[in-house]
Design a protein around this nucleic acid. Structure first.
Length: 424
DNA sequence: TCTGGGGTCCTAGGACCC
DNA sequence: TCTGGGGTCCTAGGACCC
């Protein structure tokens, strides 16, 4: 009996999250923006129908948005993250193994069972998520992850499917693959599409039948796997145990250009604090730290640089990481440039085990207790209740611009929605 | 005119994903 | 004037070793 995968994908996830607390926006065009309100990263079906593309810069569509009264939201990751967790919790309550693939998607491995009514299972699961969380999802079912992705696409686009589509033992599979453009196949990006088109491969069906030797040579093993998966041969397994991350990045485009090193220091301290918190949350430590700063991509005076430090020992202590990061920043900084972006990357991430430097000691117990206390307070009272070495200057040019952010409806007591039952 | 063979590790860059 | 952020995996090439 073959394994069966289901891909559960939340429909227009960020938009659905916003609509959950603003139901009057159902049926109306809605978009959600990236950090700093720069690009459009999520669109309702109505916004898609107006021709607003994914990733479009907001300023290019301001007129269209005004003309059609499109509702615009800044991104609210506290809200989306919390609702995502709730969706995943519902999925975990079924018999399936669950791999959380992204904030709005999960692969399920369905129990192998001869008499399994997959369509009914999927329809019920979809309904359960809607009822318990309020987010609409689509479900695609197939024998490989790549095919499940395609099944999901049909579940979402074909209204007859009603949000569920099953490609297992489907006699129409090749017909369907013939209608899918090759660049819509999971794992085939723009670069590969160019190469494939040049060879006369335009659809998922063409790719399924492509010559494996040529594929292996041109698109490496990655492309080779995709072709096998289209041929019903599973190559990409379910990863239901979350692995230790290989890297952790915290970076931001600044709200405004930054020229002063003191402002850059503040930004780096802030990003390092966030990254250190991510480490502790996952119970891991980092051995290598990289700081990078860059001017705007098309700035007249372009400058971009980064520096790496290998720490004496893996750590998740905020002050230790800040010290190292500021050291990097000092040697990176060149006066006279207008910086637009900065960030920090942590690598060499380990869990549990430590290779100590010959002359150094492990992080002290006091330090660990201090960090645990810090995290607890910030969790209870909100991020930045306690923070490191900030000047608290009123002027923070690096801070994000988010002019149209919705409240943290589900994660802050003060912003909890209030229901007025008297109607007054 | 002539200059070995085999291996590991690390890094940068490319490509892709959501 | 204004274009996000956070990841993974693969490969080629350099450095180094015996």
């Amino acid at each position: 009996m073959k394994k069966v995968f289901a891909l559960v994908d939340c429909n227009n996830f960020y938009v659905s999250c916003e609509r959950l607390f603003r139901p009057e926006l159902n049926g109306k065009p809605v978009v959600v923006l990236s950090n700093n309100d720069g690009c459009i990263v999520a669109r309702s079906n109505e916004a898609k129908a107006l021709g607003i593309p994914m990733g479009a810069p907001l300023f290019q569509y301001k007129a269209l948005i005004a003309r059609h009264n499109v509702q615009v939201f800044s991104s609210n990751y506290a809200l989306y993250g919390d609702l995502s967790c709730r969706v995943m919790d519902v999925l975990r309550q079924t018999e399936a193994d669950v791999e959380v693939y992204s904030i709005d998607e999960a692969f399920l491995s369905l129990p192998v069972n001869k008499n399994w009514d997959r369509d009914r299972y999927a329809a019920e699961l979809k309904e359960r998520v809607r009822k318990h969380v309020g987010i609409p999802v689509s479900i695609g079912i197939a024998t490989t992850k790549t095919l499940a992705k395609i099944a999901n696409r049909i579940a979402k686009k074909d209204t007859r499917a009603q949000g569920v589509f099953d490609l297992v033992d489907n006699s129409q599979t090749d017909n369907i693959l013939g209608k899918i453009k090759v660049n819509d196949v999971w794992g085939v990006g723009s670069r590969s599409t160019e190469k494939l088109n040049r060879r006369g491969i335009y659809t998922a069906l063409d790719l399924k039948r492509a010559d494996q030797t040529w594929i292996r040579k041109t698109l490496t093993v990655v492309g080779s796997r995709t072709v096998m998966e289209l041929n019903d041969i599973p190559c990409i397994a379910l990863q239901n145990a979350p692995a230790c991350p290989k890297s952790i990045v915290t970076s931001r485009t600044f709200g405004q250009s930054v020229t002063d090193i003191d402002h850059l220091r503040e930004a780096v301290i802030s990003y390092t604090s966030i990254a250190a918190e991510k480490l502790r949350k996952q119970g891991v430590e980092a051995e290598t730290l990289n700081v990078f700063i860059t001017t705007g991509l098309f700035a007249q005076q372009y400058y971009s640089n980064n520096q790496t430090i290998t720490l004496a020992r893996p750590t998740s202590s905020t002050p230790e990481l800040i010290n190292a990061a500021l050291h990097c920043l000092k040697s990176l900084y060149r006066p006279g440039y207008r910086y637009r972006k900065g960030g920090i990357m942590l690598t060499g991430i380990v869990k549990g085990y430590k290779q100590l430097d010959l002359f150094s000691l492990a992080t002290s117990k006091e330090d660990k207790v201090l960090m645990a206390g810090l995290d607890m307070i910030n969790k209870k009272w909100g991020r930045n209740t306690i923070q490191y070495g900030m000047t608290k200057a009123a002027n923070k040019p690096w801070a994000m611009q988010q002019s149209q952010k919705s409240p943290a409806y589900t994660t802050k007591w003060q912003e909890l929605p209030v229901i007025n039952s008297t109607g007054s």
